[in-house]
């Protein structure tokens, strides 16, 4: 007899037949939903909202922003993957979510997504409060060596690229204590208020504290110095090879989205990147990046995932050995 499941299955297969046919007619034919995988007010949210605001006139349809926060962004990504792959749903995919997969969260993997465009990219930096005794990166690292585990570094959590960096520093003889704060606001307040000794963060998220002088950059975790902070040492100058954990923010769609639609979205995103408003925005958040094709951007995400996974296995084994 007709049970509801059978009916649903028939409905679904009908939808699968109709879906692509409709999509090929004209893209976009209705509002493009932008899923922001974090709550309002954060870096990913600002990026998603700027993208929506600037891309609306280019694509000619409304782009409502939907915040789906939870599980390091995986809740929103799950929603993206269950939406029809017709380009009418896009989502923010950022480094933090990708590293969470390597740590065992969620059930997504890089192959489930097709990255449309690399929107923002920034190395992470180490900051101290304005009246911290440590004036240079070398002084901080020396102090870490002299009092192992005494210096407290505020990070976003364990199993993130923040944690990997702290563990890497420890493996190079500079052990510090990782103090995770789930809420960014509490993380910044803790370092600005002098309750933790240093903060691991990308510069754009603490721009107001850098400008006011409440936070002082000590070190940039990259192979070369940051052009906005020419006086701040790069980690490679101190023989620290930890420049492979960038904080990128991309726009992604499900992997089985038709190529023409991906290309159409990628063109729109590239036009956004060229807009003066975007250039102003990315300069203010220290996140300007070169334009990439969808395939290049996809490769960055896949490589990042492999890198994080490699570090995780390495530190997991070290921990187990002890």
């Amino acid at each position: 007899m007709h049970n509801p499941l059978r009916l649903a299955a028939i409905g679904l297969s009908l939808a699968a037949l109709i879906g692509p046919a409709v999509a090929q007619e004209k893209f976009p034919s209705r509002p493009v939903e932008v899923i922001v995988t974090f709550g309002p007010g954060g870096g990913a949210d600002l990026m998603g909202r700027q993208v929506a605001r600037l891309a609306e006139p280019i694509l000619g349809v409304a782009m409502p922003v939907t915040n789906i926060a939870g599980a390091s962004g995986n809740a929103g990504l799950t929603r993206l993957l269950t939406s029809p792959p017709d380009g009418h749903t896009v989502a923010t995919l950022i480094a933090l979510s990708v590293s969470s997969w390597a740590a065992g969260l969620g059930s997504a993997k890089p192959d489930d997504f097709q990255v449309v465009a690399m929107m923002q990219n920034s190395p992470s930096m180490l900051f101290v409060t304005k009246n911290s005794p440590y004036k240079t990166a070398q002084e901080f690292l020396d102090a870490a060596k002299q009092q192992p585990g005494k210096l407290r570094v505020a990070t976003s959590g364990l199993g993130t690229q923040d944690d990997i960096t702290v563990r890497y520093l420890a493996s190079q003889g500079f052990p510090t204590k990782n103090v995770p704060f789930a809420k960014p606001a509490e993380r910044y307040a803790s370092t600005v208020g002098g309750h933790t000794d240093a903060l691991y963060e990308e510069p754009g998220d603490v721009a107001q504290f850098i400008e006011s002088g409440d936070l002082r950059p000590l070190l940039v975790f990259n192979d070369q110095r940051h052009e906005s902070f020419p006086d701040v040492m790069a980690s490679k100058e101190l023989k620290l090879e930890i420049g492979d954990l960038p904080n990128f923010r991309t726009i992604a769609v499900p992997a089985n989205t038709p190529d023409e639609i991906v290309q159409r979205l990628a063109d729109a995103m590239n036009q956004v990147l060229d807009k003066p408003e975007w250039k102003e925005f990315c300069a203010a958040t220290y996140t300007c990046t070169e334009k990439m094709s969808p395939d290049q951007a996809q490769r960055v995400v896949v490589e990042f995932h492999d890198t994080v996974k490699g570090y995780m296995e390495r530190f997991g084994q070290e921990q187990a050995a002890r």
């Binding site: 939808a15 209705r30 409304a62 409502p64």
Partner: peptide, 21 residues
């Protein structure tokens, strides 16, 4: 408010989009 409320599945998805249009 542009909330992404469900549009349903199968014929109903198409029906909802037509209704909205």
């Amino acid at each position: 408010a542009q909330m992404p409320l469900d549009r349903g599945r199968g014929v109903f998805a198409g029906g909802t989009i037509e209704l909205y249009q």
